[in-house]
Computed example of a mutant assay.
Amino acid sequence: MKISMILNGKKTEAEIDADMLLIDFVRSQGCCSVKRGCETSNCGLCTVFLEGKPVLSCSVLAARANGCKVDTLEGLQEEAEEFGSFIAGQGAEQCGFCNPGMIMNAIALFRENPDPSEEEIKEYLAGNLCRCSGYEGQLRGILNFLAWKKQQGGAS
């Protein structure tokens, strides 16, 4: 079957098998930030934005994205770079494998709730698996980023 979508701002068309997952499709299009982790929709590594909302691409058929807008970290570099340095500044990037999914979900959080409490941040990011940092660095990075945004006088 043939599908068409706007992937990271660019019209993309391809012939796919009906059972192809969105993760496999975006990776076949060069979006290597989208990672395969648990294969059970529990780790957050495969997060993409489908019509602006975070979804686990390992649980969505590529055909469901036909006619939609899909963004990966490659398409959100400006937002990601601004926030990512705060995560790195806390040493939370250790192996870096979880960073793309964590950053995608943090961007979604900032878009939905520009001034979250610490508890809201923890709840929102609960589906992101990081095996080496213990999450405290990511939490400090998010809190520092939000404080910096307030100092800048801008909303996330």
Rank of each mutant, 00 (worst) to 15 (best):
L61D: 11
S4C: 10
E136G: 01
E15C: 01
C32H: 15
S4P: 01
C43N: 11
L73T: 07
N42Q: 15
E15N: 10
V70E: 09
M104T: 07
I142R: 06
A147I: 03
P116H: 00
G141L: 05
T12W: 08
C38Q: 09
I103N: 06
L61G: 07
G84T: 00
E93R: 08
G134I: 02
I121R: 00
C95L: 10
D19L: 05
F49H: 15
C130L: 06
F145I: 05
A108Y: 04
E119D: 13
I107D: 00
K35L: 02
L61Q: 12
L22M: 14
G101R: 03
G67Q: 05
E136A: 02
K53I: 13
Q152W: 06
L61N: 12
M20S: 08
G134V: 01
I107K: 02
I23V: 15
G30V: 03
R27P: 03
N144F: 06
N113I: 08
D19A: 12
S156N: 03
N144Q: 12
G52F: 12
L129M: 09
G9Q: 07
Y135K: 02
V60P: 01
L21M: 15
S59F: 06
E93F: 11
G154I: 12
Q151H: 03
G9L: 08
T47V: 09
F25Y: 10
C130T: 03
A155Q: 14
A147P: 08
N105D: 00
C46T: 03
A126I: 12
N144G: 01
Q90T: 13
I142H: 04
R131D: 13
E79M: 13
I103R: 07
L56E: 09
I16D: 03
K122S: 02
Q94N: 08
D71L: 12
C43T: 14
Q151M: 08
K10S: 10
A155G: 11
M104F: 04
K11L: 11
E112W: 07
D19C: 02
T72E: 08
S4G: 11
S41N: 12
F83Q: 01
